[in-house]
Simulated assay, not measured.
Amino acid sequence: MQRNIEDRLGFLGQFSAVSRVEIRAQVGGTLTAIHFKDGDIVHKGDVLFEIDPEPYQIKLSEATAQLESANAKLALATRELSRAQQLQQADAGTVENVDQRVADQHAAQAAVDAAQALVRDAKFDLDHCRIVAPLTGRIGNHLVSTGNLVAGSRAATSPTTLLATLVSMDPVYLDFDMSEGDYMAFQRAREMAGGDVASKVDISLSDETRFTHRGTLDFVDNELNRASGTIHARAIVPNSDLLLTPGGFARVRLAVSTPRPVLLVPDAAVLADQSDHIVLVDGPNDVATPKQVQLGDLRGGLRVIRAGLAPTDRVIIDGIPSVRPGSKIAPHAGTIHATSDQG
């Protein structure tokens, strides 16, 4: 039978998360609550951990009191400046007095700005007593139990306590390595097709015999690894059902040509002839005639014939063990069955 197929390369790949986050506190204190079960799917913004907020509530109250005091001093300085300006206009005050009151008002305003910053700083710490999920994904096991004292740091300038890890699940990456030969075939195919090929990736999981998943090649590294002679590549794969797990392995099939017509025959119809391969065809006078062929890979349970057969050849597919080259045959029409090309 004749079908349109594309050349493919096969690799072994491993899934990895697009994003992996270590959950750490930005403030220190006693851990008072954990709001997830180990292994849960959590959503961005969900509260994961709570740290005792009381010390930070006290800090916020102190900062708020300082702000109120600074506002009162600013109001007094503003009134005194207004009186000094009125006296100057009535020739009862000096320029120096007005300048002093202006400086006092500016100082009071600066004190208000500093107090407002302290309030924002205290509010930041208080807000971060509740640690939320930065992205949607699957969370690992909690590494600290409630009641323990955890260390936090806003910019990680000091050691912090690792609370849990969170990985994104949809989509996921599939990482694999290409040999130098496969990479050159990939590059040649991409060059000939103007970059339109070698982007579709078919995937078969460890418990599957068919390539039932599909991804898109989105990255090829910029140099070959000198030690292994391979180059790293990566596909991105949708995972809406969360079946694919970071760390798992899968077979990868990468298309490196545009579809073209080829002949396919049942693999059982291909016979070994020393170092070559032959198929038997219905020759003149219904005589079994051998034809040497060049084989390709298996597609849908059928063997690709790259060369040696013509579309008009009638290949013998039944009774192969009893048919010998040169023997007389009684030909009849048969049917070649192919499974899905995802197989």
Rank of each mutant, 00 (worst) to 15 (best):
N4I: 03
F15C: 09
S19Y: 14
R20H: 14
R24Q: 00
A25N: 00
V27W: 02
G28T: 13
G28E: 01
G28S: 15
G28D: 02
G29L: 12
T30H: 13
T30P: 03
T30R: 15
H35D: 09
D38L: 10
D40E: 14
V42P: 07
G45E: 01
V47S: 04
F49M: 00
D52C: 10
P53G: 09
E54K: 15
E54S: 15
Q57F: 05
I58G: 08
I58H: 14
K59F: 04
L60C: 11
A70T: 05
K73R: 14
L74N: 15
L76H: 09
R79A: 14
A84W: 01
L87P: 03
L87S: 04
G93C: 05
E96I: 09
Q100I: 10
R101Y: 02
R101S: 07
V102I: 13
D104A: 15
H106I: 13
A107D: 11
A108M: 12
Q109G: 08
Q109P: 04
A117K: 14
A117W: 08
R120P: 00
R120K: 08
K123W: 00
D125T: 05
D127W: 01
D127H: 03
R138T: 09
I139T: 05
V144Q: 06
S145L: 01
G147W: 04
N148S: 14
V150M: 04
S153I: 04
A155R: 13
A156P: 01
A156G: 09
T160M: 09
T160E: 08
T161K: 05
A164W: 03
T165I: 07
L166Q: 12
Y173P: 06
L174G: 03
M178W: 01
G181C: 01
Y183G: 03
A185C: 07
Q187D: 13
E191L: 15
A193H: 14
G194M: 10
K200E: 14
V201R: 08
D202L: 09
S204I: 06
L205I: 05
E208W: 02
E208R: 03
R214N: 04
L217D: 02
E223W: 10
E223M: 14
E223S: 15
S228H: 02
S228W: 00
G229M: 02
T230I: 00
T230E: 06
A235N: 06
V237E: 02
S240P: 12
L243H: 12
L244K: 13
L244I: 05
T245E: 14
G247E: 09
G248D: 15
F249I: 05
L254V: 11
A255F: 11
V256F: 06
P259K: 10
V265Y: 00
D267F: 05
A268Y: 02
A269I: 07
V270N: 00
L271I: 09
A272Q: 13
D273C: 06
S275Y: 04
D276N: 11
H277Q: 06
D282I: 07
D286A: 14
L295W: 08
G300F: 15
R303M: 12
I305K: 08
L309N: 03
L309P: 05
P311E: 11
P311A: 11
P311D: 11
T312E: 10
V315H: 03
V315Q: 02
I316P: 10
G319H: 09
I320R: 06
R324P: 07
P325H: 10
P325C: 08
P325Y: 04
S327L: 06
A333F: 01
I336Y: 00
A338P: 02
S340W: 12
